[in-house]
């Protein structure tokens, strides 16, 4: 992201109320993460110590400091989804995407990206679609009533070509 783009984002927040998080959120949404040079530029522009922006970037779970995959698969780990089997969804996704097998404990926070950077697998705490638990989101689309067996078909909608190495 260049300075002009960042300036445009900052200009959208004329008042101080909600500005810092608002700007970072826009950068995260556009770039897919918070690039280091963007943080350094914004620290000067917003007249804040870089250490403070870095602290914010690592405090809020919406922000990431590394680029995510092209598609972001977010599994809800909220209560309703947990009760309705979210851990099994994560397990299957890990195997299908061939990431961090067994690294995630089935709950708690995680963020894994496939070797080819096509997908990132992350967790969230409730999308507010609990009535359809378990729920997962890919990019901006929410899928409800997910079962492990439905996942391959869902992934294929996002150009997933299947896991050739292993047979699941």
């Amino acid at each position: 992201m260049d300075a002009a783009q960042l300036d445009t984002i900052v200009e959208r927040y004329p008042g101080a109320t909600g500005r810092v998080l608002g700007v970072l959120e826009q950068v995260q949404r556009r770039a897919g993460y918070l690039p280091r040079d963007a943080l350094e530029y914004l620290a000067r522009k917003l007249a804040m110590p870089l250490s403070e922006l870095y602290s914010i970037a690592t405090f809020y779970s919406f922000f990431t400091l590394e680029a995510l995959g092209e598609h972001v698969v977010t599994v809800c780990m909220g209560t309703a989804c947990h009760v309705n089997g979210a851990p099994r969804i994560v397990e299957r996704l890990e195997r299908l995407l061939d990431v961090g097998a067994g690294e995630t404990t089935g709950d708690g926070k995680f963020q894994l990206t496939t070797a080819d950077h096509a997908f990132s697998l992350t967790s969230a705490r409730c999308f507010g679609a609990c009535s359809m638990a378990p729920v997962l989101r890919i990019d901006n689309r929410i899928f409800g009533y997910v079962t492990p067996d439905k996942i391959p078909a869902i992934l294929r909608q996002f150009d997933w070509e299947g896991n050739h190495h292993r047979n699941y």
């Binding site: 909600g18 919406f62 969230a124 705490r125």
Partner: peptide, 27 residues
Amino acid sequence: VTIAGGAGAFVCGEETALIASIEGQTG
């Protein structure tokens, strides 16, 4: 009225953390 966005922190529902968050700090 202004809309301010959160960024994924449950504790920011607590009122003093929420205010800190709107002011552009960690919650």
